[in-house]
Design a protein around this nucleic acid. Sequence first.
DNA 1: GGCAGCGATACCCGGCCGGTATGGATACCG
DNA 2: CGGTATCCATACCGGCCGGGTATCGCTGCC
Lengths: 280, 280
Amino acid sequence: METRELRYFVAVAEELHFGRAADRLGIAQPPLSRTIAQLEHRLGVALLTRTSRKVSLTNAGAALLDEGRAILGAVAAAERRARGAADDEPGLVLAAKAGGSGELLAKLLDAYAAEPGAVPVEVLLVESRVHAPLLDGRADVALMHQPYDPTTGLDVEVLRTEGQVAVMPSSHPLAGAAQLRLADVSSLPELARWPEPDGGYPDGSGVEVRNLTQLFQMVSLGRAVAVLPEIARTALLEGMTAVPVVDAERVSTVIAWPPHSRSRAVADLVRVATGFAEVS
Amino acid sequence: METRELRYFVAVAEELHFGRAADRLGIAQPPLSRTIAQLEHRLGVALLTRTSRKVSLTNAGAALLDEGRAILGAVAAAERRARGAADDEPGLVLAAKAGGSGELLAKLLDAYAAEPGAVPVEVLLVESRVHAPLLDGRADVALMHQPYDPTTGLDVEVLRTEGQVAVMPSSHPLAGAAQLRLADVSSLPELARWPEPDGGYPDGSGVEVRNLTQLFQMVSLGRAVAVLPEIARTALLEGMTAVPVVDAERVSTVIAWPPHSRSRAVADLVRVATGFAEVS
DNA sequence: GGCAGCGATACCCGGCCGGTATGGATACCG
DNA sequence: CGGTATCCATACCGGCCGGGTATCGCTGCC
């Protein structure tokens, strides 16, 4: 199976339309049809069922779509990393969620910079989907949060685990409580909504926010409530209160890297991170 | 980058010899040289340094070799799984180390079989390198042991963690001890040697064994000593003694599966495994 | 200095990838 | 109910590229 075939198949499987897929690939439709047919023939299984009006995936097709996407990502990552490794380990790229664990990040960078043999670390701040830059090779390491960020296909080490707090305006009826349960909060109409992995928002009446700055502004305006890791306490603004949510799932801050990364620098960074996470 | 190019590059990088690599690939040497040169040109980096007497890897080449092997494995796995998914989820293949955690395995199979919607489970017993069948698609799930088996690039759940014991002939001078430290055992000349991941054996004077049956036989013959997870106690033969090694690293039995495996059956099996591991 | 080994280069051929034109099936519409 | 638009498959053709053989150039080594 060649990556060309895989690219073509993924395009068709995503569009479920040969014409549009061919368009997206920048080729004509007939060669695309032919290539898919050849692929199916060589695999010995049908990947798509097509009537002349509708294309849909078979089981085998669905499986191949999943794996194919991962493979194409890995190929892109391999190319990028091979190019990057050419100029003698020029530095690391660390991805982190903007506004995430700022203090931990700062400590990590400082501690690593003090290591003998440390290389320059570039920080790549992303709004969401922190794992994406790891999978396509734009970053070498990432700080992520379980269970929020998918860590599938990555190697991880847990750095810190913490409970969660409900962050709300100090004027909120629940702000006086010593502690809350998830049920108290989850049904609130002003519960802020975060983007799903696909970029859309879940249903609900709360405001839609994309990052912590927006959220905090909304909370301080009295228009939102959210459940966040305890560390968010350190960033509270005027007029905001945090109340522990005792039965909320515990959140782990993890450091993650792609498997098969034998880079000395990544190994050092992970060691430093896990090392000082224990004493702090 | 096409998988053909990657296959060719990996062959050359492993052989460090264009002629032998071409032979292994079943093609002539000139097209191979040309393909590698094209790949380097497109990537914009040198992957190999060749004098007319010696071929060696550059940094970029070493990086690409690692990732390339993983990608080729993933491609093979994708093909196999696509073929497998064709006949409507015919069953699961579970890989486990032969003689490993037999009792846990039996309980797992029983518990899963009792689940509603359970599919037939085929057990693939392997001598070593349990992760290999997962990576190339021959198995869907595996029981592995951390830190012995590499779990890089896999998703895992820990099932059980246990200490280790030194297994030795009852006649051994240390057999009377209530407990031992690693230092007491690691320097023994009769310490059995296991294959490394590459199939070779480490240096030492102890016997070379390939599986538990061989090892136990050697121990009962008075010719070997080994450090094993506690569970090995249940399988001791006549004339063998197990003594706890208090400072040995704790060993975790984990259930592992390839990332991006959305199969219902795998999810069920993992749930069952983690569920009863807690109560047992 | 001759020779053996190895990778690079030169050149040719055939297959395959991509293009255009067209066919056949199906849903939709007047 | 026939016409039409849409969409995938088929037929056919041309150019590129992947693979082959022959050979060159370089480098250790006896």
